[in-house]
């Protein structure tokens, strides 16, 4: 069969059978699934790994964690020894007394990398010692808060009605209690220390995530996939955890990362009133607080802990963004 194809700008082409090649139907190839089938978590991990910003955030965090664990062990200065002859030294300096003492004894004198604080304690050691406390408390408290918040908020939002009403009223009452009172009472009952600190912070901290989750669940309750899952016979718990939470994960992760500096400074406040870490132990929050008082005269004492808090936040955010993109089921990764 020959046809002539002609158009405005095309030359006349004669179509003969020789020009056309029959490809035929290759059923096998057609049925081959080219895109690999992935579970939700595999998909998430791939997306995360491929995200350079998120990976950078992760690397920074890992570096901080490693430094926090090892740096205090490797430095010659202790985080707690007072030295009235080396007070308020700027970074990378030593005082005259220290230099004289080292010249006498013949030992090599290590510089104070971050300087010293008002009591002559080395800030490098204190910063990394403080990192242990702050990173641990920040991550632990926020994680616990989020888990509790998800459960409570999810139940409240999903079941609605009376359960929702009761839970929300309990939240109202809890939120109205001033945190100081709770903290002091906890201190009386449980003594001071990291455990009571975490309990004090979690006791009220879970509320904001619960509220957030509840709001989102209320919104998503009427989505089609929820309906689909229920039709297929999924239990309520399964619907909440398996279907709704991944869709809420974006906001949740954002909220989590935002809550961490809050946790760090709350810890500083609580430690000041006696619950939490005891002197001479320190944390980034405490370092920032004491540094803030001296901001005008010795700015480095504030800049250093503030810098670390900010960069930790940044890395967490980068990681968090990556996680959010990774965990979002609507955004499938590319390969």
């Amino acid at each position: 069969m020959t046809e002539t194809i002609a158009g405005k700008n095309t030359p006349n082409i004669e179509l003969t059978d020789e020009l056309l090649q029959r490809v035929g139907k290759n059923t096998e190839e057609m049925n081959k699934v080219v895109r690999p089938s992935l579970t939700y978590w595999q998909d998430a991990w791939i997306k995360l790994r491929k995200n350079p910003v998120a990976t950078l955030g992760l690397i920074i965090l890992v570096i901080y964690i490693l430094m926090a664990i090892f740096a205090p062990m490797l430095t010659p200065y202790s985080y707690r020894t007072n030295n009235s002859r080396a007070m308020n030294l700027e970074p990378m300096q030593n005082s005259e007394d220290e230099i004289a003492a080292a010249a006498e004894s013949g030992e090599k004198l290590a510089p104070h990398i971050f300087g010293t604080d008002q009591m002559g304690r080395d800030l490098w050691a204190r910063t990394w010692m403080g990192a242990r406390v702050s990173l641990f408390i920040g991550l632990a408290v926020v994680s616990i808060n989020t888990v509790i918040g998800c459960l409570v908020g999810g139940v409240a939002g999903y079941f609605g009605g009376r359960a929702d009403m009761i839970i929300m009223r309990i939240i109202d009452v809890l939120y109205g209690i001033p945190m100081i009172i709770l903290a002091i009472l906890l201190m009386v009952v449980m003594g001071s220390g990291i455990v009571s600190l975490i309990v004090a912070m979690v006791a009220i901290g879970w509320i904001s995530s619960a509220r957030l989750v509840r709001g989102q669940v209320l919104q998503l309750k009427s989505s089609e996939y929820v309906l689909a899952a229920k039709t297929l016979g999924a239990s309520d718990m399964r619907v909440i955890i398996r279907h709704m939470l991944p869709n809420i994960s974006g906001i949740l992760i954002t909220n989590m990362t935002m809550a961490i500096p809050n946790a760090i400074f709350n810890e500083a406040f609580l430690s000041y009133i006696g619950i939490g870490i005891a002197a001479p132990m320190c944390s980034w929050g405490l370092l920032a607080r004491t540094g803030a008082a001296l901001m005008e005269i010795y700015p480095y004492q504030l800049i250093i802990p503030a810098f670390f808090i900010c960069t930790t936040m940044l890395s967490l955010n980068m990681l968090g963004d990556g996680l959010r993109d990774a965990l979002d089921p609507k955004m499938r990764g590319k390969y």
Partner: peptide, 9 residues
Amino acid sequence: IIGVSMPDF
């Protein structure tokens, strides 16, 4: 990020 990392004081 900076706004959230730095407390009011």
